[in-house]
């Protein structure tokens, strides 16, 4: 899968580059979506052709629904991405429609808020054990979780940290990173017990918000407690029945704002659509690696 060339000098050139390369990346994504859909064997009924689904999970406000919409063509990343965080109230299901006679694949997106997990997560995590899913995509954002329709000034953390915004933000990012580890730990327990070969993709989003400290971010996920939990699963299952990949990306370039329009953190200067598109390309390449593993290559 060749890397798209990146060479442009002005805005007009940049726009053309984005359009041309987005079209190329879209073609790759369509190919990947086609793989996820699977194909129906001759004589196989529609029910029999149903491929095991893909589970998408992570804390609230990290990009799970955005990703599912991108993969199912519900939105165009350069034209109509949502500008405001829209919290999912319940389990969402997105179906990759079969081309021709292909079987369907379902993306199941779990709601991320902690208070919603007790209602909807246990049953679907048991489904992971039972082999209903061929893979799980776990989203994180180095703690940069979107705050919905609430002011940061109404949060318990703001009160606990002297009602100072910088202290609140530091505590909020740390609390969210701790929650990312809790979610991984929950998933890992069920991946260890999964009855079929299964893959896991870790997607660390909002690259545009932490690009200036990317070494620290990569260390956090690739050398710290996060990778220790992944290693546990790998050691437990063996490389033939578990494959993990990780990708750092930006699904949408946006400042970290509350739903009330309060700025919490600006994007890192210099992170533009060129970097974003590169990250989407990397995401496609990474999913392709999972495809090859699944197909035994």
């Amino acid at each position: 899968m060749p890397d798209p060339s990146i060479e442009w000098s002005d805005a007009e050139d940049g726009g053309k580059w984005l359009w041309d390369n987005y079209t190329r990346i879209r073609a790759v994504w369509a190919d990947l979506a086609s793989w996820m859909r699977g194909t129906r064997a001759s004589g196989e009924s529609e029910e029999e052709a149903q491929e095991p689904g893909i589970l998408i999970l992570g804390p609230g406000g990290v990009g799970k629904s955005t990703f599912a919409k991108l993969m199912t063509d519900a939105v165009h990343p350069l034209a109509d991405m949502p500008v405001q965080y829209d919290e999912s109230m319940d389990v969402e299901s997105y179906t990759l429609e079969p081309p021709g006679d292909g079987g369907e694949t379902e993306f199941v997106v779990l709601p991320g808020q902690q208070h919603r997990r007790a209602d909807s997560w246990p049953e679907l995590l048991r489904d992971v054990q039972d082999g209903r899913f061929r893979g799980a995509i776990l989203f994180s954002a180095f703690g940069h979780h979107a705050l919905g329709d609430v002011s940061y000034k109404d949060s318990a953390l703001y009160a606990e940290h002297g009602r100072k915004k910088p202290a609140f933000l530091r505590a909020f990012l740390q609390k969210c990173r701790d929650d990312e580890l809790r979610v991984l730990s929950d998933l890992a327990t069920h991946l260890k017990l999964c009855s079929r070969p299964v893959w896991m993709l870790s997607v660390v989003t909002k690259q545009d918000l932490w690009w200036n400290v990317r070494s620290a971010v990569e260390d956090h996920y690739q050398s710290g407690p996060y990778s220790a939990i992944i290693d546990e699963v790998r050691n437990h299952r063996g490389a033939k029945s578990f494959r993990h990949e990780m990708v750092f990306a930006s699904l949408i370039i946006r400042r970290l704002m509350t739903g009330r329009g309060e700025l919490l953190k600006n994007n890192v200067a210099g992170y533009d659509q060129e970097y974003q598109l590169r990250s989407l390309w990397q995401l496609a390449v990474t999913i392709d690696a999972l495809r090859q593993w699944e197909q035994g290559k």
């Binding site: 919290e87 808020q113 919905g148 329709d149 109404d154 949060s155 739903g259």
Partner: peptide, 26 residues
């Protein structure tokens, strides 16, 4: 829906009088 999301975010992040209030809202 707007009421739902405001309440949900307060359950998740809000400074409330007690944990019992959080449970009541939930």
């Amino acid at each position: 829906n707007q009421l739902d999301r405001q309440v949900s975010q307060m359950i998740e992040h809000g400074e409330l009088g007690s944990e019992l209030e959080r449970v009541e809202l939930k």
